[in-house]
Amino acid sequence: MTLTHAPTLETDRLILRSPVKADAEAVIAFLMDTSRAKGFGGYTNRADSWRWFTLNVGHWHWHGYGYFTIEDKASGKPAGICGIWNPEGWPEPEVGWVVFAGFEGKGYAFEAAQRVRRWAYEDLGLTTLTSNIVPGNTRSIRLAERLGAKYERTYDNPNMGEDMLYRHPGPEAL
């Protein structure tokens, strides 16, 4: 049973879909991995990680968008999350991504982010998107730049502290 009214989006190798209860374990495991989740605001306990998972469900209901679960078509397993994020205190809607352990280095984050960005522009009618990246997260910086995003400014994110805002090309440029 899906937990949101998220559409199902596809790429050649991925299904981007609504989160389901069975996805919670993979998300919680990621969030509690302090080295992997550092740039995502990881947590040190299961209860806070569970709250973030349910926060994403609520985000979908509040905004009509949030993080999709990235499902690997070949294995049927959750490979990460990617979506549009804009909680209280965010400067504007952001396209964000995370790839879980074992699914890195396959281009899944790039593939998912391209598809999510297209959905945000074509279906949601958004005209601009950012990616907010913690300084030092070189992998996310490289991915944002590969997606055509340009560094715009550094700002104080109330949840993450210092964040670098990268601006994505608008729909007319894609």
Rank of each mutant, 00 (worst) to 15 (best):
41 G>Q: 09
27 V>D: 02
145 E>W: 05
174 L>W: 12
16 L>W: 02
31 L>K: 08
119 W>K: 05
16 L>A: 09
15 I>N: 01
90 W>H: 12
117 R>Y: 00
119 W>H: 10
120 A>R: 06
62 W>N: 06
24 A>N: 08
51 R>S: 10
131 S>I: 06
108 Y>N: 04
73 K>G: 11
48 D>V: 11
30 F>D: 01
158 P>H: 15
93 P>L: 04
91 P>D: 06
62 W>D: 03
110 F>A: 10
85 W>S: 08
29 A>L: 13
56 N>L: 02
127 T>H: 11
147 L>Y: 07
70 I>M: 04
38 K>Y: 11
111 E>N: 06
88 E>Q: 13
21 K>Y: 11
27 V>L: 15
132 N>G: 05
152 E>W: 14
101 A>V: 10
53 F>K: 01
56 N>E: 00
69 T>L: 00
74 A>S: 14
174 L>Y: 10
22 A>S: 10
57 V>C: 04
67 Y>L: 15
125 G>Q: 02
62 W>E: 03
6 A>E: 01
42 G>N: 09
77 K>Y: 10
40 F>A: 13
69 T>S: 00
89 G>K: 14
90 W>Q: 14
14 L>W: 00
71 E>N: 07
95 V>N: 01
34 T>P: 12
82 C>Y: 00
126 L>R: 06
151 Y>A: 11
125 G>I: 07
55 L>K: 10
30 F>E: 01
116 V>W: 02
101 A>Y: 07
153 R>M: 15
58 G>W: 02
80 G>P: 03
73 K>C: 12
40 F>Y: 13
128 T>F: 10
54 T>C: 05
103 F>S: 05
66 G>P: 00
49 S>A: 15
